[in-house]
Design a protein around this nucleic acid. Structure first.
Lengths: 104, 104
DNA sequence: CCCATAGGCAACTTTTTGGTTGCATTGATC
DNA sequence: GATCAATGCAACCAAAAAGTTGCCTATGGG
């Protein structure tokens, strides 16, 4: 996977807002996702494509409309990536702390 | 602080690489961070500024050089954001599952 | 059958971002 | 104190992203 792609998709307030909205309702149509946004439907649609490409969302055509669902996959991957970074990081900080204490 | 800013900072392979490198060594100078990168020092410096603005890194002037340290703050924030999204989402899925079971 | 609704596609503009170059500054070192 | 090494600052360029507009297609309900 490309972690950077997932983070890049998350790195926009409009897209984060879309994800938040989706985490409350269980699905939306594209038109519903546009409500309240200060951009056109086409603009919003591009954001949704970015989210879909990062596996954060699934777009499922259903008759004449398209249903937008959250996808757990990308989200979980991103979280695990951050967790592992934090762990390495904490370990390094601990090592530093011990080194400092030893030098006392 | 804005979660989107942190994610945007993470959404670039060069910057992710820098963070990984920092999670192994305990600190670097700017010049050291440039080693192995296919870009100029000024280019790398801009990436470091983005990371610093997102509180993922601290730039600490030390004599004639600048030390780059990891900063836990932004990372933890981003992870907690994802966790909360996942929780809400799981809760929603559970609710859906119960609703389906009830209708059986 | 008609038409309003939901959306797709493509071209275009504007803004942001990633990257560069040239030059100035400051600290270490001999 | 001359010089090299580490960095800053500013202007600039190119490519990518964000957003728009115009028009076309298809589906669902009266």
């Amino acid at each position: 996977m490309a972690a950077a792609q997932v983070f890049a998709a998350l790195g926009d307030p409009v897209r984060l807002g879309m994800l938040k909205r989706l985490s409350r309702r269980q699905r939306c149509t594209i038109a519903e996702m546009c409500e309240g946004l200060p951009i056109t439907r086409q603009g919003a649609r591009k954001h949704l494509q970015v989210l879909a490409d990062a596996a954060l969302v699934v777009l499922r055509p259903q008759g004449r409309e398209v249903h937008v669902h959250l996808a757990a996959q990308g989200l979980g991957e991103a979280r695990r990536f951050l967790e592992s970074l934090e762990r390495q990081w904490d370990a390094r900080l601990d090592a530093l702390r011990r080194a400092v204490e030893d030098s006392d």
